[in-house]
């Protein structure tokens, strides 16, 4: 009976691991196969042909797309953290009228369906002359990252003991110095967590990137992959799509595995966004 339970347990573990890993494994082996090889199904890596990896950069400005994604996601992270940490200090450490109402409003914003702001955001971006530019995307993506950055950082900020800042205030420090000298170093772990979550959200963002860009050179990675086509109408672009997918996914997987514990802590800390 005990043996049966153990076997069942390990069988379940294996099934879950297989289900989680197989699609990405299959994308990798598909990315090494070209031409008519893709017309047959292979379960094991047979060839190691890198031509899809070269083709993905030759047929479209994929290098440019990756750079765009890095610029957009990087800027979004920096802006969200800069705005988020200062706001979280006020929300987390200072009692003032209207605080709960404002925090609830910010939480509500993080639940906004993206499509509900699409028309208004389109008008806003156009009127700023930011249509089909990276700053336009940065501005739009802040709507997705800033609310939960403030929320999660506020949760972290509240957990710090109150004696920390009292000593500094007794010594005559201003709130701004307290934020910079006392809380910034203490908040570093939390900032890494929320920064990573903001990076992943922005790196994966599709609806705004698809709607607010027009030309291939300005696209970020998700719309670039979604709109990839073969060199002829008859060719299946699956090999190159898989190559592109593998290229942009590996850095994210590495990030997630390295910062696994921090990400789990961030996801469970409060505002949870998938």
């Amino acid at each position: 009976m005990k043996l049966l339970a153990r076997t069942g347990f390990w069988l379940l573990v294996i099934v879950i691991a297989f289900f989680a890993l197989f699609p990405f494994y299959y994308a990798i082996i598909s990315s090494f196969r070209t031409g008519s090889a893709l017309f047959s199904v292979a379960y094991w890596p047979e060839t190691f042909d890198l031509s899809n990896y070269f083709a993905v950069f030759e047929r479209q400005p994929f290098g440019r797309n990756i750079l765009n994604s890095i610029i957009v996601s990087g800027s979004v992270v920096v802006l969200s953290l800069a705005l988020g940490i200062t706001a979280a200090y006020a929300f987390g450490r200072i009692a003032f009228r209207g605080r709960s109402l404002m925090l609830m409003t910010i939480l509500a914003v993080s639940m906004f369906p993206q499509v509900a702001v699409l028309a208004g955001m389109f008008e806003l971006i156009r009127s700023f002359g930011l249509y089909n530019t990276l700053p336009g995307l940065i501005l739009a993506n802040l709507m997705l990252t800033l609310p939960f950055t403030i929320w999660v950082l506020t949760t972290f900020m509240r957990e710090l003991p109150k004696e920390i800042e009292e000593a500094a205030f007794v010594d005559g420090a201003t709130p701004w110095i307290v934020v910079r000298r006392v809380f910034l170093p203490l908040m570093a772990p939390a900032a890494v967590t929320t920064g990573l979550l903001a990076f992943i959200v922005s790196w994966n963002e599709f609806l705004f990137a698809l709607t607010f860009t027009l030309t291939n050179e300005r696209r970020t990675v998700p719309p670039a992959i979604a709109l990839m086509s073969g060199s002829t109408a008859y060719e299946l672009p699956w090999g190159t799509i898989m190559a592109g997918s593998v290229i942009v996914t590996i850095p994210i997987i590495v990030l997630v595995l390295v910062f696994q514990r921090k990400i789990v802590a961030g996801l469970t800390a409060g505002a949870v966004k998938g």
Binding site: V13, I16, A17, A20, L21, P23, F24, Y26, A27, S30, L38, F39, S40, V41, I200, W203, N204, F206, V221, P222, P223, I225, A226, L236, W238, I241, M242, S245, V248, T249, I252, I253, L255, V256, L257, Q260, I263, V264, G274
Partner: peptide, 29 residues
């Protein structure tokens, strides 16, 4: 195991959708 189950979550939605489209392809999937 905990790291393994995080991998699907980390893969961008667009990439997952494309990966599964290929796996679900009617002729060659």
């Amino acid at each position: 195991m905990r790291a393994v189950i995080l991998i699907p979550w980390a893969i961008p939605t667009i990439v997952s959708a494309k990966m599964w489209s290929w796996m679900l392809h009617d002729q060659f999937g």
